[in-house]
């Protein structure tokens, strides 16, 4: 299997060194480059087009969230994993809406770091309950915000399986921003504290399928947030 190219953006020199050692020694990973600030990262990473970027949330020159917002549109095939020290769900959620695909709260043990790199490459790292709570609220607010000029959400009757793929033409636009019933169920169970395993058991699906639903939720969130921002900047111009 091809090795996963990993770029690291971290301002603390000691941590950079440790992360370097972990990635260099990890099977299946290759270190594409290391950067100590956002300006270097924004300049160099697009040339490297890595598979995964490990991005510190706090950088000296600008926030990791801004850095993600700049890099994510340039590198659609790259997965971005945030590294955060603060357990602040607010910042983490901002990073996700800016285009990050997952996050790890430091300290991250070497084994977990490598696992997470593989997970994010395969689709996404598990969504925590705290973030699930913010996501469900964000969808609610977005939905209410446009409820008056959009057709209603796909009815539960159309829930045969996945919503996103088989939505009929007029519903396509809505389905981008509205969760399919299964996705909503997964999200609600996470908010209630269920683990992936418990969620899978409760819904009678595999853990892998839970992960697939979560990835779709991330995607819909990215799409909705991007559109929200575009609509909003045009409206205020």
């Amino acid at each position: 299997m091809r090795k996963i190219n990993v770029a690291v953006v971290e301002d603390d020199a000691r941590l950079r060194k440790t992360v370097e050692r972990v990635i260099v020694n990890a099977d299946g990973c290759r270190l594409a480059g290391m950067f100590a600030n956002a300006a270097d990262a924004i300049r160099e990473i697009p040339k490297l087009a890595p598979d995964v970027i490990l991005m510190d949330v706090n950088l000296p020159d600008r926030s990791g969230v801004e850095c993600v917002a700049t890099l994510a549109p340039l590198l659609p095939a790259t997965q971005i994993l945030m590294l955060t020290v603060y357990q602040d769900p607010e910042t983490t959620f901002q990073a996700i809406t800016a285009g990050a695909h997952g996050y790890l709260v430091k300290p991250v043990m070497p084994k977990r770091l490598v696992e997470a790199i593989h997970e994010v490459r395969e689709g996404g790292v598990p969504m925590s309950r705290a973030i699930a709570r913010k996501v469900i609220e964000a969808f609610r607010v977005m939905h209410e915000g446009r409820a008056h000029n959009q057709p209603p959400a796909a009815s539960p009757a159309a829930s045969a399986s996945d919503g996103a793929t088989e939505a009929s033409e007029p519903l396509m636009k809505v389905s981008e921003a509205v969760l399919a019933p299964r996705e909503k169920q997964v999200l609600e169970l996470l908010v209630e504290g269920y683990s992936y395993k418990e969620t899978a058991a409760r819904l009678g699906i595999s853990i892998g399928t839970v992960g697939t639903y979560v990835n779709r939720i991330y995607e819909k969130l990215h799409v909705s947030c991007r559109r929200e921002m575009v609509a909003w900047s045009k409206g205020s111009g």
Partner: peptide, 10 residues
């Protein structure tokens, strides 16, 4: 925080 993170990882 950075120092302790380092200790934990090492």
């Amino acid at each position: 925080g950075a120092g302790l993170t380092e200790i934990a990882m090492q």
